[in-house]
Amino acid sequence: MSVQVIFLLAFGLAAVWFGIVVFRTHSMVRSALALLFSQTAVGAMFLVMQAEFLGVLQIMMMATEMSIMAIFMVMFMMDPGGLGEMDMKHQRKLSLWAGIIAFGGASGLALFGDWGPIATQIPDAGEQVRLLGIELLGRSMLIFESAGLTILTAMIAATSIAVQPPHRPKETPDKSKEPYQVHNHGGAA
């Protein structure tokens, strides 16, 4: 076992473990942050595999993305204490089996596929970044630009469907329902 395998295993197990935690914890914020650490572990695996640029990019992007996920979870789930015993699952058996079969199938392929010898010589990190840049603004420019355009379109479209329809009359808050009291420990401040 090479050092690389050990690191891959360590980060890989962390990624899988955090991935499982996402669906096991009851706290919404924990769930989102567990996903973040799972993705970060994947980014670390990229670094182990010497894909430095991708690894750093993955680690950077996911921090923001998952934090935003966390705030949406809090918004939608109304579970302020964070440790409430929420159980929001359905079709447990089906999904469990689907997950197991997917895992079994994919790992079977991985084990029994004929991968041939693995490459040992790869371009160094600086060279990779240079090559990737030339690739992006050369042969793959169209694809890259389309991706950029897609994300722009998605941003605009998402914003426009998410903004409030202007004609809705402002509803008066129902005072009969008491708000949850987050007790403030710095209360007397």
Binding site: V42, L96, G99, A102, A106, S107
Partner: peptide, 16 residues
């Protein structure tokens, strides 16, 4: 190893 880890994440994702 990497592929099996990916498979495990894939399975977890499907389950979730």
């Amino acid at each position: 190893v990497t592929l099996i880890i990916a498979a495990a994440m894939f399975g977890t994702g499907i389950y979730g």
